[in-house]
Every structure is written in C-alpha cells, then in structure tokens.
Design a protein around this nucleic acid. Structure first.
Lengths: 219, 219
DNA sequence: ACTTAAAAACCGTCATGCTTGTTTGTTTTA
DNA sequence: TAAAACAAACAAGCATGACGGTTTTTAAGT
C-alpha cells in the first residue's frame, strides 16, 4: 500500500482498519503469545491508533475473539477448497495428512492452543469461541466422510483415524516448540501415513504389514 | 497442618516455605494459567507472605522455573518407578500407554504447554527449563528401550512408536480442553493401543490385522 | 452544484488498578 | 549477637477502558 486512497467510503475505511486489526492480532498472538499481546501492540502493528481499536471493538477480549473467528473461517475455507480438490483428483490419505500438517503448522495450532488455554479458565471467552470451533469440526467431519466414501470404510472408522491424525499433529507441533528436529517429525509423519494407509486398506490383509520405518529384529 | 510446629530449624523452615511455593505455583499455573498467576497469588496460595517469596526466589520467573523443574523431577521419578514395575511384572504396551495418559492428564501436559508457550518467545526462560526437559526425555528413552528389548524390536522403532504415543496423547489432551467427551478419548486411546500392539507384533503377520474399533465395509 | 448538519471514524489523554522488584524493619533460629 | 527467615510498605511501570475532541464521509436541503 504505497499511498492510501485519499477518499474511501465509510464502509471501506471501517473494513480496512477492522481487517488490519484482526490480522495484526493473529500475527502478534502467534509471535508473542496471547498474554504478551496488548491492545497498544495490536493497534501499532495494524497501523491504526488505539482509539480506532476501541471504536471498533468494545474490549480487548472482543477483538481477540473476532480475530480467532476470522482465522478459523479462513482455515475452514482452505479445508473446503482442499476437500474439493481431493475428491476431484482422487487424492490419497497421505495428501490429507500432509495438508493438515501444513495447515496446522502455519499458525493454526499455536494460536488455537493459546486461545484454548485462555478459554480453559475463562468461561465467557470459551462460550464466545465455541461456535466457530464447532464449525471447524464440522468442516473436518465433512472431509472424513469423503475419505470414508473413497476408501469404502465406515465413516466412524475414518473419523477415528483422522481425529487421531489431528491429535498426533497437535502433539507433534506442541513438542516442536522445544525440540527442533525436522527430520524427526518428518519420520514420525511418514510412520503415521503408512499406518493410516494400512488401516484404510485393512480389508486386504496381504498389504497391511510393512509399517514402521525401521527394520524389525527377530525375537 | 493444624498448628505449625513452634520450633523448626532454619533448614526446615526454609524447605517448607520453598516447597509450599513450588507446589502452589504448579497448582495455580494449572488452574489459572501462567499469565494469570501473580506472585501475590502464589504467596497467598502457599500461605506465606510475598516477602518470603522474594526472599527465596530472586524473581517471578525464577520461581516458575524452579516449580517446573520440581514438577518434572517428580514425574521422572514416577516414570522410573513405573519402568521398574513394568520390567518386573512383564507389562504390556497397553500399560505404558495407559500410564502415560494418566500421567500427562494430571497436570503435566497443561503445565508444560503453558511453560512451552512462554519459552517460545522468551529465550532466557527456554534455556532455564531446557536441562530438566532433556532429563525428562532421557527417562522416556529409557523406558522405550526397555520396551524394545521386551518385544524384540529395534530401539529406534520402539522410540518412534512411543514418541508417537506421547504426541498423540498431547494432542488429545489439547483437544480435550474444548471437547469434553471421555468416551471419545477412551475410544481413540483403545484404537491406538491396538495399533501399537499390532506394530510390536509386526513380525508375526497373521496377528496384525484386526485394528480399529469399527467394522469395515467392503469396497 | 453548493452548503451544511449529522454521523461515523478516528485520535490522544486520563484515571484506575494491578504487578513486580526494592527496601526497610521485625521475628526466629544458631 | 549475628544471620537467616519472614513481613510489609513503597515506587515505578504498564495495560485497560473511559472520555472528550477532531477529521472524514454522508445525506440533505436549497
């Protein structure tokens, strides 16, 4: 944005500052943590005054909640786009695992865990974010069902498998905060992808066995 | 503690207040989050004055770090005790999964994730907690090795499997913050336990197949 | 087209409350 | 009597929400 347009409609002005604040909030929560992100920080990062912030959001918490909703709605959109492509191109379960890993690794996991930890002891905040989180899980269920269809397994089974995938990814990212070791995580993910493949092919016994990245030793 | 002993040695007094502060810190971090835990809170919860707190710890961060170390050392001790029992009683991989789930679910995961999120953007703090985290992982590796021995698989393989277990558990607890559904988590854990069993029995093809809790449908 | 009044967006200051670390004083033990 | 443990008051800083004032846009009205 070289030179801001000299004349913008009220709606444009409003939407632009609002949007800038939402983006800044997410970026700051990711970078400095929720507790380390003050309203002044957010206003400054968004390039607006603190007064503008208070004009658009009635409290800090209100802004945070809106920012999280904003982020999740975008993620849901990405997920839906991916799902369409997945169906169209006959994707494999590996693609889903990779996609979720990338998606969560950007900012999604860190920001959501910051939010969840706050929500854990702030019931009002929890109620605020609950609806959009529900929407997120519905979008996930949708792709799980597509997967079940594709591999001819029970939806229940696919859901368990994929929820497990998400949990594993969450846990891996959590660990990656202190243990920086891309190869380790890549290995773990490969391990899991093979496992998922085998699980989905479970009705064809012959193909199931070769899991795990390391050779086994006779007992 | 009805009536505090009227006469305690300096060492006793010191150790008692120190210990009370460490315990209070962990309890409060678990209950109200790291950011929501002030030095006044900790002193009050420990039943000592804030002056006593500042006498024993040179800063809030110093106390927090000591408390985390305290917590992890206890967890390491528990892990070692369990490992001994595991070997003595010829335990199964299920026992390990159950043990880790219980252990992490008490306070360990929530508190560590609070700490890790802080450490993520506070290098000095990260350096402080790193050594004890390393010790924790060494204790874990130890039990992984025992497991590998027991099932006659490559240590590398057992480590991958068990690190995956830990990641899964972490992710599950993270999700459990917003989704309260014990049956769901129990199911996921069963699912995983079966998978681990199959993986460890991987060199005996015939026994591998029946994973997953839901029946499969022909394609 | 031009003026003008209202509304919306925006800005900056102020008051309040909380937190931390410091410091000075008191009690308990050695 | 000295030192350690403990207690309480103090000072400085920061964050939030409130508030009064300013600029920009909109919508009439003529």
């Amino acid at each position: 944005m070289a030179a801001p347009r000299l004349r913008r409609s009220q709606k444009e002005r409003s939407e632009q500052t609002r949007s800038a604040l939402l983006d800044a909030a997410i970026a700051l929560i990711h970078e400095k943590g929720l507790a380390g992100t003050s309203t002044s920080d957010m206003a400054e990062a968004a390039g607006v005054s603190r007064g503008a912030l208070t004009h658009h959001f009635k409290s800090r918490e209100d802004l945070i909640a809106a920012a999280v909703e904003h982020m999740l709605l975008i993620a849901i959109e990405e997920l839906r786009t991916f799902t369409k492509g997945f169906i169209a191109q006959n994707g494999s379960s590996d693609d889903i695992v990779d996609f979720l890993w990338d998606l969560m690794n950007r900012r999604l996991f860190i920001v959501t865990i910051e939010i969840m930890l706050e929500a854990r002891h702030n019931p009002a905040f929890l109620d605020t974010v609950r609806p959009v989180v529900r929407e997120w899980h519905q979008a996930l269920d949708n792709i799980w069902n597509q997967l079940a269809d594709r591999y001819g397994v029970e939806p229940e089974f696919a859901r368990a498998l994929m929820n497990g995938t998400l949990c594993l990814i969450r846990g891996m990212i959590a660990q990656s905060i202190i243990r920086v070791d891309p190869a380790y995580y890549a290995g773990l993910l490969d391990f899991w992808k093979r496992d998922v493949r085998a699980q989905l092919a479970g009705d064809k016994p012959g193909t199931v066995i070769p899991l795990g990245s390391a050779p086994r030793v006779a007992r």
